[in-house]
């Protein structure tokens, strides 16, 4: 049993950050037994919701019923797979990357939010909304740098304290290697995500960029490192 599998409990409890979640999602897609275990543990966790039941505020019922009157439902997925599969998210993010790369900041935020509806899962939907919010924010600012045939762009919204990093056509990181993303604050790099081994394109939401000086991409052994290997593949100023 691989080491990553021990994350099944934390995953079922939602007790993981986005980086681990992405890692584990990829694992789940390749491990049906793990997916079955996660489904069971998720069910177990749901039993804990009994403990905190509490009468909701009186206005909640009418507010929710009002909203569903105005909210169209999604069609069933044609494939009966779960939102945990990474594919829909990747597909969505590819679309977002294209939009960001083409349009930069501005009104494209709406387009992104709209496109996310047909085939994105719950998680991707939340992320999609946040990405759209960053890209569409009035104070959104994009910076781009070319690197070895590829490109790294960061759209940053200081007011939202979030950024969207878009990596396009980076050179293959090599066998057993992956790109890792960093936010650099007070000269200290902090990891904000590791891409899948060999992946060369990505769109990632980066939270907590306020006060940071730079965004960086490094090439690391698969799974990432605690400090970036120098020189960085790309670096962009933030703030």
């Amino acid at each position: 049993m691989s080491d990553i599998h021990t994350l099944a409990g934390a995953y079922a409890l939602n007790a993981i950050d986005d980086m681990d979640r992405a890692r584990f999602d990829r694992h789940l897609a390749e491990c049906p037994a793990c997916a079955a275990e996660v489904a069971e543990l998720t069910e177990t966790v749901a039993a804990l919701a009994e403990a905190t039941a509490e009468t909701p505020p009186v206005g909640l019922r009418s507010a929710v019923l009002d909203r569903i009157d105005r909210t169209p439902q999604l069609r069933p997925e044609t494939r009966r797979t779960s939102g945990r599969r990474p594919l829909p998210r990747r597909r969505w993010l590819a679309a977002a990357a294209a939009v960001v790369a083409l349009g930069g900041a501005g009104a494209v935020g709406y387009v992104i939010a709209d496109q996310s509806r047909p085939d994105a899962g719950t998680r991707a939907d939340t992320e999609a909304r946040r990405i759209a919010a960053v890209v569409g924010a009035p104070d959104a600012r994009m910076r781009t740098t070319a690197t070895d045939g590829g490109r790294v762009s960061v759209v940053e919204s200081p007011s939202l304290d979030e950024a969207v990093a878009v990596l396009t056509d980076l050179p293959a990181p090599g066998t057993g290697h992956a790109y890792q993303l960093w936010v650099i604050r007070d000269r200290t790099p902090q990891s904000v995500g590791v891409l899948a081994t060999g992946r060369t394109d990505a769109t990632e939401l980066v939270s907590g960029v306020r006060g940071a000086q730079a965004f960086g991409v490094s090439r690391e052994p698969s799974g990432g490192s605690t400090t970036p290997t120098l020189p960085l593949v790309a670096q962009l100023p933030l703030g």
Partner: peptide
């Protein structure tokens, strides 16, 4: 509202509706 919106995506073979909602 998300439960309403994504209801058709709920897959009963993967667990209970209550578990999914929570």
């Amino acid at each position: 509202v998300e439960v309403w919106r994504t209801a058709a995506r709920f897959d009963p073979s993967r667990g209970s509706a209550a578990g999914w909602i929570f």
